[in-house]
Amino acid sequence: MAKEKIVPAPDADSKPFWEACRDHKLKFQKCAACGEVRWPASILCPQCHCRDARWIEASGRGIIHTFVVYHQVFNPAFKDQIPYVVAVVELEEGPRLLTNIVDSPPESLSCDLPVEVVWDDISEEFSLPKFRPLPG
């Protein structure tokens, strides 16, 4: 029997991100001073240390910066998903997100491949942003 799904643990900084995910929106903080769009969420800009930021909605498109294929069960919650793909996706707006690539055989993937967000509703409270290759 597969164990219960592992869910994110939002903190004060990342709560708005995960709340937006529940509405199937990808939102990130954009620095009011230098314009850097950042992830993970934080109280100040890692580039210029400015505290003012607003949340913007990202397009959901990006490229695979890098990816790996899990062939062993590191946690029973993922036993039935082997082999699965974990990737770092670089979004058009700049931030990089650790995520999964879905709907595509692992051997068809490569670094810099264009991808778009798809949503995985894992519970009432949480939807995970995952990605699939752009058609064509």
Partner: peptide, 12 residues
């Protein structure tokens, strides 16, 4: 690892 990575099956 952190839950924000573990929820995607990424460990260690």
């Amino acid at each position: 690892t952190r839950p924000s990575e573990a929820c995607f099956g990424h460990f260690g």
